[in-house]
Write a protein that binds this DNA or RNA. Structure first.
Lengths: 106, 106
DNA sequence: CAGTTCCATAAGCGATCGCTTATTGATCAC
DNA sequence: GTGATCAATAAGCGATCGCTTATGGAACTG
């Protein structure tokens, strides 16, 4: 259960990979669709997606010759756990976060 | 106010820098004290601390020939804000976090 | 079937990273 | 003053990174 944030931080350190991740948050996309909307080549996209997948941030669904990537819901939890250890050092955002959490409370 | 997580993610991508940060969470330390407890040279420590400082994660207090580094309380907020945008994708940790937050509530 | 599209992998290139040793400036101890 | 200690910077080296083009396998299209 030891949070393993190393691959996670390395995966998120690249702005293109973060943008890919943010794009996939909106829903699954094929590699070609992603490659069409990013200013890098298709192999670059595939390599970034492989890095994100190895970090546990995304998962793949193969359908015919297409590969659809989506966000893995559990992918960010090691990062959340890591940040959580230093919660006392970001008190400025606590109120906002508490408000948000209270809003989703039954 | 635009969350600027780029330097932050890059700074945290290195395990030695994360270990330095975690060490500084316990309290301020001089460069020589940090260099004594890490298996790298003093210049390497200074370089890592410079990266952490440029990312806003730590601050320096100079006293004579010593330089004492400490965690900057606001340093992690861009990371928290970034993660916060994808809150719906880590529901597994919400309960735990809510419990923690409720515990610090008056 | 041939031709095309989708995706992953390989190979290589320049840039960056993390580290080292060497050095310098500044401060303290004597 | 001299010598020692602290910390930052410079220079350089191997490893890794992000990207490219080239290629190959698999699957749809006609």
């Amino acid at each position: 259960m030891s949070t393993e944030p190393d691959a996670l931080f390395r995966a998120l350190a690249d702005p293109t990979r973060r943008a890919l991740f943010e794009r996939l948050v909106a829903g699954e996309h094929s590699v070609s669709a992603l490659a069409a909307s990013f200013p890098v080549s298709q192999p670059a996209i595939s390599q970034h997606l492989a890095t994100l997948r190895e970090a546990g941030l995304v998962s793949v669904r193969k359908d015919g010759r297409n590969a659809f990537y989506r966000v893995d819901p559990k992918g960010l939890t090691p990062l959340v756990n890591w940040v959580d250890r230093y919660r006392s050092f970001w008190p400025a955002k606590l109120d906002k976060l508490k408000t948000v959490l209270r809003g989703m409370e039954p």
